[in-house]
Amino acid sequence: MSTLEEHVDVGVPIDKAWDSLHQVENYPSFVEGVRDARTEADGRAHLDVEARGRTRELDAELSDRGGERVMEWRTTGAPELKGSLSLQPIDREHTRVQARVEYDPDTIRETFGGPKGFAQANAVERLVRSDLEHFKEHVEHRP
């Protein structure tokens, strides 16, 4: 398993960032490749994802450690992915969003295609960084 950690600081209070992370239906606005997303029963989410011309349906379980402002997630089928999004207040109007993703490089390549080795790690890092930047834009400009 490979692990990636990235963060971004957003110019909104922690409650607004926390609420935005829980609006799964808005994920297509800031998560690359997500074409459709919906919340399902029992803390589950369904995502239609397109990458390199391949479309996949992913189901995930979401759980909160609300007192700690941590949302954990994991896919319930292939590909096996898991991670977390944690929020930390910087001050009253700014929040740090920390993303942690755990994945098997071979599984990612088999499922979505793409490069191998170091090039793949760089691609995953760029993707997560881009998603965090898009989340920043989304949450800061949302009414």
Rank of each mutant, 00 (worst) to 15 (best):
A78T: 12
G43T: 00
S86C: 11
L47H: 13
R69G: 14
R38S: 15
G53P: 14
E137S: 11
V139Q: 06
P115H: 00
T95S: 10
M71P: 09
K16C: 00
G53I: 05
H46N: 12
D42E: 15
P79C: 07
R38M: 09
W73V: 02
I14C: 07
Q88I: 05
F30M: 04
D91E: 14
K136L: 11
L4W: 00
V34D: 10
D106Y: 05
Y27D: 10
V34Q: 09
V101K: 08
N26V: 03
L58S: 08
W18H: 08
R38P: 09
D36K: 15
N122I: 02
V70Q: 06
D131Y: 03
S86D: 14
T107K: 15
E133R: 10
R126C: 04
R92C: 06
E50F: 00
M1K: 01
E57K: 14
S20Y: 00
A121S: 12
A99Y: 01
V8Y: 02
V24Y: 05
L58K: 06
A45K: 08
R92Y: 06
G11L: 03
V10I: 12
R44K: 14
G114C: 05
A121K: 13
D91C: 12
F135H: 10
D9P: 03
S86V: 02
S84P: 13
D106E: 15
F135W: 07
D64H: 10
V128R: 02
V8T: 05
L127T: 08
F30S: 05
E72S: 13
G53L: 08
V8K: 04
D48F: 00
R100D: 06
R65F: 09
G113K: 04
T107S: 15
G66D: 12
T111Y: 11
L21Y: 01
I90W: 03
R109I: 07
S2H: 06
P28F: 03
E57C: 03
G53H: 10
D106C: 00
G113L: 06
L85D: 11
P89L: 00
E32F: 03
E80T: 07
S130C: 04
T107N: 12
K82G: 09
V139G: 07
Y27E: 11
R44G: 10
K16W: 00
D19F: 00
G33M: 07
P79T: 01
V10P: 10
A123D: 12
V8F: 02
A99L: 08
A17N: 04
A17I: 00
G114W: 04
E140K: 01
A37I: 01
